[in-house]
Structures are given as C-alpha cells and as structure tokens.
C-alpha cells in the first residue's frame, strides 16, 4: 500500500493513484512507447501479453485499485483464452486496494477450477503485505 511520509496518521493514501497516474504512468507510457490513449486509466493499461503469447507474462500496472478493477477483469479474462499457463508479473505493483486483490483471488480460484497453471512472478513487497494482511497470501502463493 502506498503510504504518505508526512501524514503519519494516514496509513495509506486512497488518492495516491491520482498523482501516480499523472507522473508514473505518463513516464511509463513514454518508456514503453505504447499507443495508449490519453484517457486510459492507471489500472487500465493493456496487458503486455496477448492471448497468443502463451508464455509472455501479464505485467500488472503500478496502481491496482477499484477504478481499474473492471478493466483489469476484462484483461485477465482475455488472456485466459487459449492458454494453459498464465504468468502474472507483479513487480511493478506499488499500491493495491481490496477490490483489486479480491479480483486476483477470484482469478486464482477460477484458474484452480479449470486446472490452469497460474503463477504470480516477482510479487512486490506492497502486494505481499496486502495479501498477508487479508490472509490470501497462501492462496496467491506470494507468501
């Protein structure tokens, strides 16, 4: 979770996605030379893998929150098509809220049901901390 250095009574800043959206993602767009439109939101970046790229990991964006949960859901469903293995690269995640975490848990449960191999690679410390806090770290295998 993103914490605010100067505001020690505000454990995590629910508005952090606004600032990181403006700065972090803009830079990320330049770096990756994506053709994302200006209205695309933080958690709404296209996954780096298409359904055809069987072993290419899905790279999660830096901010995972309720504003982008619906789009992330669509993205995860899309990469499921025709795959036997889904690798999620979570190294960039520096803020995640309960809605996004819940989505990952449901996705994990669905892959277990359908015998798909799903793996979260390089989970960031923020994701691990949030998963532990909500007692889903074992399920997500990020403990």
């Amino acid at each position: 979770m993103t914490t605010t250095k100067n505001n020690d009574l505000i454990g995590n800043d629910p508005l952090a996605w606004m600032e990181e959206e403006v700065h972090g993602v803009a830079q990320e767009r330049v770096d990756k030379d994506t053709d994302a439109g200006p209205d695309q939101d933080v958690a709404g970046q296209e996954p780096s893998a298409s359904p055809d790229d069987a072993d290419v990991p899905v790279v999660l964006p830096a901010i995972l929150n309720i504003q982008g949960a619906a789009r992330l859901h669509e993205q995860l469903l899309a990469v499921l098509q025709g795959r036997k293995q889904v690798i999620i690269d979570a190294r960039n995640v520096n803020s995640i809220d309960t809605a996004a975490l819940q989505l990952l848990v449901i996705f994990r449960q669905e892959t277990l049901k359908s015998s798909l191999d799903m793996r979260i690679d390089a989970p960031s410390s923020q994701l691990i901390a949030a998963a532990r806090l909500l007692d889903v770290a074992d399920l997500l295998e990020v403990a």
Binding site: D39, I66, Q67
Partner: peptide
C-alpha cells in the same frame, strides 16, 4: 477523517466515468 478520503477516491472514479 480517513474514510472521507476513501469515499472521495470512489467519487472521483464515478465522476471520471460521467465525464467520459
């Protein structure tokens, strides 16, 4: 209070949808 900040984050998401 903190929950007001959390609520504001949700409201901004709603406003963004309407603006689009």
């Amino acid at each position: 209070d903190f929950l007001a900040l959390q609520g504001l984050s949700h409201l901004l998401g709603t406003l963004r949808k309407f603006e689009q």
